[in-house]
Each structure stands twice: as structure tokens, then as C-alpha cells.
Design a binder for these strands. Structure first.
Lengths: 196, 196
DNA sequence: TTTGTGCATTGATGTATGATAAGTAATACC
DNA sequence: GGTATTACTTATCATACATCAATGCACAAA
């Protein structure tokens, strides 16, 4: 759990005595590629900190089509915040895109950490605000940008994911079909190799 | 400021002595229809609590087109949370759709209220979580639903706004053109009046 | 090596929505 | 009350993206 440790100590700025207390409350778990960590309809009881590997959260619409809400690779937390916070059934599925080691963080852990440590409270606040900022950017892109622009933005934001994630998942994240993404890529390749 | 008062006392659960202290720190302001409260590029220094009337926040893309991010009517708070929290220049414009009375809430106010009152802290937390939940639903709709579905969802969620807001703004919120919205409405009217 | 399975590409065709333009209705302004 | 603006609708055509179907590749299983 080196990554998670580092995360608690550095980012959330938790000092040694509190750290020892808290670290006991989390659990490490190996998740196989394709394994589900949360199903739509269940209440989300954990946040998943990715030690290594890659998770995704997604919805499934009435036609059975998947729509990817979020990817989470190393040092990211994947969860359905709303479901966990409000104790409501989730709309999301969460599963592993690659074999993944996750740290299970319970709501309990969060509450306790918040009580113990002002800097954790503070960090959590920042995380929420970041989430909001990120979502707002995405909404704005979906409202205003073409598939091509959205893809270019994705590459810029997540160059690593662009390599690790199959294209059809990227397409799903962007809100287009794999076929369309393939065409967009072709377009971009043309533009870049004959720039006149 | 009856609405704001009620909001502080009831929702945020602020008791009398603290209330007296806090209420001094806010400012009431009349905003004329069309008047701008925030421009893209500025840092957002206030949250705007709507006493009565209607605000909107929106972006403007490279082609000069507006994309509405949020509406806020009575008892809602409109702001660029990210800009205010991180002290960054905003991407948003905020202006008044109707003549509006707003209560100006500074970051200062929020910090102070958070220090004074645990229940305000708690309330603020809930507000952030609500914001995230709401944004996620919107992202999911933009990814998965047709213009028609998105419009039906809008009506269900904001029946009041559907009446108060001009259609072209609703279209902008949905991510379609006013012409498309007009078509969608015609479709829906047909379906509802000849349901066989 | 063969066979299968999942993913990316490509082409043909369809469709929802965009762009443009014009007309009509509603509202605001002298 | 008339005139100018602004909003909404309708019609036509244009386009981005979806759908469907076929093919080609990997890579894994047999």
C-alpha cells in the first residue's frame, strides 16, 4: 500500500500517530480484470483507491449500452460519491479494466479521518471541489465541442490512458461510437502528417 | 432577505447569536435583467443567493455561442465554485434572466460561518455533494440520451423554469439549437394529443 | 497450425440534429 | 397604437455521427 500511504501522509498530511490509527481501518484487495466492484442498484459502501491498475465507472442505458463516467488509474479514487454519501442505490457499475490492487475506504474511515485530522478535512474539501471543477469542464465540452475536439482534449488530459484503455472505452467516455472514434483518429492522422 | 434568513436558520441551522454575527457580512443587491454579475476571465469573488428572480451561468465558445451551465431561481445559489475556491479566473459568465434580488456571499462569509458553526460546515458539505450528484446525472444524460429525452427530463426536473425561461435558453442548456427544441416540442405534442 | 474471440477499421446507408433563411407571433418601446 | 425587437416556428438543405455489415488483425486457446 505504498501509494496509499504516501497519499495519506503527503497529500492529506496525516502525521504518524493518527496514521497508525487510520491505516488499520482500510483493506487491500486484488481485483481481476473485468471483476465488478459495484453494481447499479447497490449502495456504494466503499471508495476505491487504486494502488496500481485501472478502474472504470459506467452506467448502462435502457438499450444496454455502456457509458463511461470515469476512469481511475494509480493514485485515483473511484467511487459513487453520491451513493456513498447519501446512502442511496447507485446508478453506476464499477469494474477493473486491468488487474488492479485497490484499497477499500469505508465511509467510516472518512468520518473518522475527518474527526481526527483537520488537514484531512481540508484535503477532502479540496477533492470535492476538484471533482466539481472536473465535471463542469466535461459538461461544457459535451455541450460545446465536436467529437474531434473532445478526443483531442482527452488525449491532452490523459495521455497515459489513451495508451492503456481500449478505444471503444474511450469512445464510450466521449459519448460516441467506436466507429466514429476510429474515423476521428484517421482525420487527425491526416491533418498531422500532411500539414499543408 | 427573508429567504436567505430562512435558509441560514433552517437549512444551515444557524442559531440566533451566530446568525446576528453572520448576517452583517452579507449584502443585498438588485440586479437588472441582463446585467452581468461575473465575466469569463474574472475571479469569482461571490456566491449569489437568489432572493427572488432568476440567474444563469454560461460559457461562450470560440464561435461566440452561449452554453448554459446552470439556472438559479429562488433559494438557489449561483456561483463558479471552482473559481471562488481555487482563486482562479472563471470560464463562466453569470447574468440575470429576470430582474433579481441577490444576496452576495463572500468566501470570507463561508469561511467564517464554517468556523463558527458545525452545522453550517455540515450543510456546506451536503451542498457540495448535491452539486456533484446533479452534475453526474447531467453528464450521464448528455452521454446517453437524445434531445427529446433530455428535454423531458428537464421539464420533469424544472417545471417552473420551463415556464419562466425562454426556449432558446432551455435549448442552450440541453445542448441543442432552438430550432431543434421547437421540433422536439412539436413531436411531443403530437404524441400526447393522439396517443393511439 | 488451426480456430476462436475481441478489437479496430472501412464502406454503405440512415437519421438526428445543425445551419440558414423566412415567416409569424409575441413583447417592448416610443 | 404603431413600430421595432425579440422569440418561436417552419421549411430546406447540409453534416456529424449512428447503425449495420464485412473484413482484417492480433492474441489466446485448442
Amino acid at each position: 500500500m505504498q501509494n496509499f500511504t504516501k497519499y495519506l501522509k503527503t497529500k492529506a498530511n496525516i502525521a504518524e500517530p493518527e496514521f497508525e490509527l487510520l491505516i488499520k481501518k482500510v483493506e487491500l484487495r486484488n481485483v481481476e480484470k473485468g471483476e465488478l466492484l459495484l453494481r447499479s442498484g447497490e449502495v456504494c459502501r466503499h471508495s476505491f483507491f487504486v494502488e496500481n491498475g485501472l478502474l472504470r465507472s459506467y452506467t448502462v442505458d435502457d438499450a444496454g449500452k455502456e457509458h463511461i463516467i470515469q476512469f481511475g488509474s494509480e493514485n485515483w479514487i473511484v467511487s459513487d460519491r453520491s451513493s456513498a454519501f447519501f446512502n442511496e442505490p447507485s446508478d453506476l457499475f464499477i469494474d477493473a479494466v486491468e488487474d488492479t490492487k485497490v484499497v477499500l475506504i469505508s465511509s467510516d474511515f472518512i468520518n473518522e479521518a475527518s474527526e481526527i485530522s483537520a488537514s484531512f478535512r481540508n484535503y477532502n474539501q479540496i477533492a470535492l471541489q476538484n471533482h466539481i471543477r472536473h465535471q463542469q469542464k466535461r459538461i461544457n465540452l459535451l455541450l460545446s465541442a465536436s467529437a474531434e475536439l473532445r478526443y483531442m482534449n482527452f488525449i491532452k488530459l490523459y495521455p497515459d490512458l489513451t495508451l492503456r484503455v481500449p478505444q471503444w472505452m474511450i469512445a464510450s467516455y466521449l459519448g460516441i461510437t467506436p466507429e466514429s472514434l476510429s474515423r476521428v483518429r484517421k482525420e487527425l492522422a491526416h491533418k498531422n502528417f500532411k500539414p499543408n
